[in-house]
Design a protein around this nucleic acid. Sequence first.
RNA 1: GCCCAGAUAGCUCAGUGGCAGAGCACUUCCUUGGUAAGGAAGGGGUCCCGGGUUCAAAUCCCGGUCUGGGCUCCA
Length: 589
Amino acid sequence: MVAAVLTDDDPQALETLRHSAAHLMAAAVVELFPGAEYAIGPAIADGFYYDFLLPDGHRLTPEDLVRVEERMRTIASRRPAFERSELGREEALAEFRRRHQRFKVEIIEQLPATEVISCYRTGDFFDLCRGPHVPDAGGIPAFRLLHPAGAYWRGDERNPMLQRIYGTAWFSEPDLEAYLERLREADRRDHRRLGRELELFSAEEALGGGLILWHPAGSVVREVIEDHWRRAHRAHGYQLVFSPHIAKEELWVESHHLEFYADDMWGPVEVEGTRYRLKPMNCPFHILIYRARTRSYRELPLRLGELGTVYRHERSGVLHGLLRVRGFTQDDAHLFCTPDQVGEEVERAVAFSQAMLRTFGFEDLEVALSTRPAKAAGDLALWEQAEATLAEVLARRKLPHRVDAGGGAFYGPKIDLFVRDALGRTWQCATIQLDYGQPANFRLEYVGPDGATHRPVMIHRTLLGSMERFFGVLLEHYAGAFPLWLAPVQCQVITVTDEQLPFAREVAGRLAAAGLRAAVPDRPGERMPAKIRDGQRAKVPYLGVIGPREVAAGQVHLRDTRSGAQTPVTVDELVARLGSEARPPELAL
RNA sequence: GCCCAGAUAGCUCAGUGGCAGAGCACUUCCUUGGUAAGGAAGGGGUCCCGGGUUCAAAUCCCGGUCUGGGCUCCA
């Protein structure tokens, strides 16, 4: 018998608590829905869930959750113990068959024959479970059910769809309340909400799922990001290119995309008897640029970069705001190098992406190394060599990382960088993929110092991922309040009465001449407090207020909307101060 | 794709077989004011699309589109 000692600092204890809460919830569901079959109910990050198959195909509603939660409290008030028992395999199978619990029977049948089968009883509820648990069901200080959902048995869409309930449990009511507040904060920061409120982008029904319209304010931010990106790439030895959105189907045969990636590609378009496909990736285009003439080893590494728009046929159910879309622009680049340049090029790309992500306020990065998938192209020895090269780079840069076995692309292993945002959530941005396959598919060559032809190695990489996803992540990270260099409008010039409008326009003109984005709201007759409120709500970093006093003194009363601080400044001071704060950050390598 | 839920004014939403509504936004007029909403009047609808049931459909039924939650956290 394992007696769990609950302490606040032990993550294991919190997991135990949540798993116990899942059992308590299942007990309540079985009482409310006699005949319910229960599948699995693990603790997860921040909470727990349990999957059920309810009698008569009942589907859970939010109202059902209220009843389940009430019943959980009723059961908990009786403080039934979590009683552990150990059964033999046959005994356990008989018990769960008697209870008509097909999922438990299936699980036991798949356990090794020698495994000790432990079960827990909570009042009338009896479950197959490894444990441990809290001593009794009254020992769960704070819990809340969150939402119902559908989920396939074992996550496989060929299996029956079960009803899942998500919940959360904590050591205390204040902990629970803090967590619920975190959820509310995440909702307030939801990029879809902010995108609408700040008029940054939209997705219109008339356009089709997963397709995004960038509105003027969002387009300004994107343009600033792209300018920063282009400048940095030129400084780091990249050459920038453009390529079309569509190519002959034959090209995708040669690249093996149609063989390995067809499900994610849009269907063919036929023009004058030739089939074309929308591009899901930019690589074949950059490869054709490489192949346009004979290349010398003196040109390598050749780094071709492009903000390339691609189209992928994501399944309708996985689309999500800007984070999962069907048309998006990758900040893509392909590095063509000699085999002995690979290590250095990968290392430079990793450093470049770390530096780039830092300029957007992402200091804390997580790193993953993804290895050979089941469906892979190319020979095994090359894969092993490629994986070893990536691991060496991570070791040299002293980057702690996890290994995602089988998570690589079909043409090579990869290093992914994830940013951690202001709420502690992680998002994949940069990816650096080695590719020995495409150079062979396309018979790429360069002439070496020996006068003979050799095969280059390719590295695919993005730093930000895609403009859409990165913008969505950035928007949530900053909660819509962009730093000055990214803000769509950097300074709004507000007058106390309409009398000051000419001076306000003059000030805005001075700011614009200095390359700053300034605006004078066109709202004649509107009161100043209303214009201040609009500026605050639009998250404009600076509001410059001008009344009769400021006109007389040639000043602006500057309000920093982030801190609320107010200071009178001359127009020259205003231009100098905003000009220096608005400069894009330098890339620190 | 699959399960569930939703779609009513630009936005947030109420209305649930019998006259299409509120707040904000927008337009006009009045107000010229000092750091998060000055006042009044007005305009604005294919109640997502298509079909069905009904004397009558925004409302009920069927199909579609789009959106949202979830679908490899594994006793």
